[in-house]
Write a protein that binds this DNA or RNA. Structure first.
Lengths: 336, 336
DNA sequence: TTGTAAGCGTTATCAT
DNA sequence: ATGATAACGCTTACAA
């Protein structure tokens, strides 16, 4: 690899002058700038970031540790958001995936430390509560899509309660009166919060208990989550005869559509359907197009980076831990 | 940050002894190993990868430049495969996303060069032909899910022709006689290759031309790809009355299912459906479960890393460029 | 078995 | 405006 000294030699100046040109420091004669730039071009010189990092203390690297996040299409957007923001701020994101077989957060954290990462973002696959070792206190650290069991890290999560509340209110506002909520696995936080929002809206509208019902579309059998949306939807629709179904995720909404079709009913006319995710092309592909609460993953990714940069900037001052709930947006299409 | 010298001082040995312990070089007295390890533990020392890189020439970093790949759920698996393989080989993947608004491959390549990346993987969103500047010749470079217009880079793509051939043969073998192929946008390579395979199978089975038909489910209007799978499927099924529909992607298969339902027919009984992708949960969620040709993204990611490592190892010897077509697997479920 | 000295490609400091 | 020299934290080579 070409070094600054070789450039200096070819340009016939000292290597410090080359450094000045490379780092755009002022005070180099235009004539020399030209010579240096020509030499750089000719030799194909690139500054060595590692060498630079050894001397100045800025690595401009942010570590991103993901609990399977990057294989979960729904939340790939977190990564993308983080990467975009990092790039805009002149930082490089170093992404590490947790091995699902041997999930060892600390090992990846060590990796980040060795690269002199300035801060860490930990992203989870779904809104949950995670336990962290004291190692995670080493660097400014922000959690996305999860909170720590001790609540002792800055965290960024979707505002699931508000989302549940909002979409339910919209349904009620539009005149639906018998709503079935086909919720996710009740063990996960998202499900709990959405349910809270759902109930709040019900209460606010004074809907009696026999006019709504909540079921779960996921069953955990031996640690594996099994989707039973189809069966549940069929049973609920036949027995309870709702005029609207609120579905825990778009993927399950596909099943609900299919079930409704099969019962000879029409989505949007006979039964309204609403959902959570706004996952990629799915809402647009369904007919009628699915109205769904978008999870703000991309924005959460961006916010994570801006938060971690803030923590880095205020490293020495003790800062109260903040928790951010990012609002979800309703994509109002044609299913209710 | 703690340095090797501080550790040495606390342990009461020379910094070289600490280096030996850190790098697991043999020939240090057990007693001293203990002392050093205690000091490392106490001070929380981590070796500085940047400093090490400055001296030895190995960065152990592989650059991964992605053309929107990491936002495309279907091919997130490429990244995951690459990352897994890289990790297994003791390498770190540095991932960069192309900005869709200002896609500048060269700038990201520069970034990789500055980090002294040892090789580059360029991943595309879908199987296509891409043009590269001479800059890409700087480092050992492997293309995934695309080929270069000049065919001058090692490339890894799915064997779309074989996939099209194989799934068609399976359909024919199972006795279907009137097959409608609802293909992707004919401009993309995947569509062209699959069509070739489709036709080959047809010919092999001696199916007359009026017993099959090919339509496209994507229209490019002003540069934007519009999905018209629903309309096309409806028309084709009503007019052509196929006994099997081969669909360009799982997402479109959802629409095909819906259309078939609506016509009062049953997937798997009245009309078989086959597809390409095996995208995440979709095939499992449909009823009957969708039989689909899985695109081998994960494997392609792994292969990309192993290929680039091979190129790096044989850097000095001139090597003929190789093109890898990775076979696709049929996930045989219940839709045909 | 352990330590010393030089060197990697930068940046920082200070002198010219 | 330019350059010499030291320093960063590590690895390499060699000496003790």
């Amino acid at each position: 690899m070409v070094t600054i000294k070789q450039v200096a030699q070819l340009a016939g100046v000292s290597f410090k002058t080359v450094a000045r040109v490379v780092n755009k420091e002022p005070g180099v004669k235009p004539h020399n700038v030209e010579k240096v730039e020509a030499a750089i071009e000719k030799l194909g010189y690139r500054p060595n970031k590692a060498a630079s990092l050894v001397r100045k203390k800025q690595s401009d690297i942010i570590g991103f540790i993901s609990d399977e996040i990057s294989t979960t299409p729904a939340s790939v957007a977190i990564l993308k958001g983080a990467q975009d923001m990092a790039w805009e701020q002149g930082k490089t994101l170093m992404v590490f995936n947790l091995d699902p077989k041997h999930p060892n957060k600390d090992r990846l954290y060590e990796e980040c430390l060795q690269h002199r990462s300035e801060g860490i973002i930990y992203g989870a696959m779904y809104h949950q509560s995670v336990e962290f070792s004291k190692l995670f206190k080493t660097l400014p650290t922000v959690l996305v899509n999860c909170v720590s069991t001790q609540n002792d890290f800055t965290s960024i999560v979707p505002d699931d309660e508000l989302a549940g509340y909002y979409v339910t209110k919209q349904l009620l506002y539009k005149g639906y009166k018998r709503i079935a909520f086909l919720n996710l696995n009740p063990d996960i936080m998202a499900a709990q919060h959405r349910q809270k929002g759902f109930l709040k809206a019900m209460q606010e509208y004074g809907i009696p208990e026999n006019q709504w019902r909540i079921d779960t579309i996921e069953q955990v059998i031996e640690g594996r989550t099994v989707n039973i949306a189809g069966e549940v939807a069929k049973q609920v629709i036949e027995e309870f005869k709702p005029d609207a179904v609120l579905c825990g995720k778009d993927l399950a909404a596909i099943k609900v559509y299919l079930v409704i079709e099969r019962l000879g009913l029409t989505v949007g006319q006979d039964i309204a359907v609403a959902s959570f995710d706004n996952w990629h092309d799915i809402p647009e592909i369904l007919e009628p197009k699915l109205s769904t609460m978008a999870l703000p993953y991309y924005e959460m990714g961006r916010l994570a980076v801006s938060q971690v940069l803030q923590l880095i900037a205020n490293k020495n001052t003790v800062y109260p831990v903040t928790h951010h709930k990012v609002p979800c947006l309703l994509f109002d299409r044609a299913s209710f």
